[in-house]
Design a protein around this nucleic acid. Structure first.
Lengths: 157, 157
DNA sequence: CCTTAAGTGGAAACTAGTTGTCATTATGCG
DNA sequence: CGCATAATGACAACTAGTTTCCACTTAAGG
């Protein structure tokens, strides 16, 4: 099963696979969690981006906060505006690029989702120490930063 | 920024966000890495599932190994058969459900991808200890197992 | 046997994201 | 001011997965 010579690289491979598995599971669980609020994981993330910014954002700003393309964010925004989670308000710096504000419904949905998520998360971490969680987060962040650097060529090591 | 009362749950939330960010980055990097082999991350994963099993698998078996639905796996398989990575061979136990074998091209693609991945992974883990990586993997696995249990009700804690 | 339930492939509609193109709207520089 | 360039929204086509339905095979029970 383990064909890779470097044991650290082998574990990293398993971490990558764990990340894939977790992502799928998290999205599914998230969808279930916020379904009563008429939300999906994706919509929840859009609302979260604006709520955490604490001010109206344009579509490209939301995209950047979420780490997706501006077209992807725009798609969700167009739907969510019709569903009443957001309102457009004029952007003083760009007439063609409105800012998106959370409506009352949007604000309420976010705080409801946050409440659900807190209860859920509490139940997941009982077996793990704070120290352990900290280290894990830090490790993931280190790997994530490394992912920004280019793929090394064969002669580079 | 941190509105959650339980510090462990708050860190877990950040771990979840880190997992989302990493998943996106990993897929993008994976696509770049195996593009010279005429592969994508998704196809690489399908090939990997069969290669690691060491024997031909049916579509539902591949789906289970990958953690996706059988229809999702079938879609990739139908495409990849046309592209010459797989061959169908008759399933003695189910005439309607062929087994998928890697062709020479499929086998070669997998080992080439593995070689590329090893070089890449080596470069990502130089800053991290084996111990640290082990603990991270273990933590992720604990969280993943917890994700299988149902969302706790308000009275459960 | 026959019938029923489970497993399977195929196809369609859907979610969520991507890339690419086009027209319009800023922005900055000469 | 005017013009090249960047930013933006709209739209279309694509990837990768999901759910849902239908039809056919297989397995198990009476």
């Amino acid at each position: 099963m383990n064909i890779q010579p470097n044991p650290k690289a082998a574990i990293l491979t398993e971490i990558m696979l764990a990340v894939f598995r977790m992502q799928g599971r998290l999205l599914k669980k998230g969808d279930e969690l916020v379904k009563p609020l008429n939300l999906t994981s994706a919509k929840w993330q859009v609302i979260g981006a604006v709520a955490l910014a604490g001010k109206p954002l344009s579509a490209p700003q939301i995209a950047e906060a979420m780490g997706i393309t501006r077209q992807g964010a725009q798609k969700q925004l167009n739907k969510m505006e019709k569903e009443g989670f957001f309102e457009r308000c004029p952007n003083p710096y760009h007439q063609n690029s409105p800012l998106y504000t959370l409506t009352d419904l949007g604000i309420r949905s976010f705080s409801d989702a946050m409440a659900l998520e807190t209860v859920w998360a509490d139940g997941l971490v009982t077996d793990l120490s704070l120290q352990r969680l900290h280290e894990t987060l830090q490790t993931l962040n280190v790997i994530h930063e490394q992912l920004d650097s280019p793929v090394p060529k064969k002669g580079d090591r």
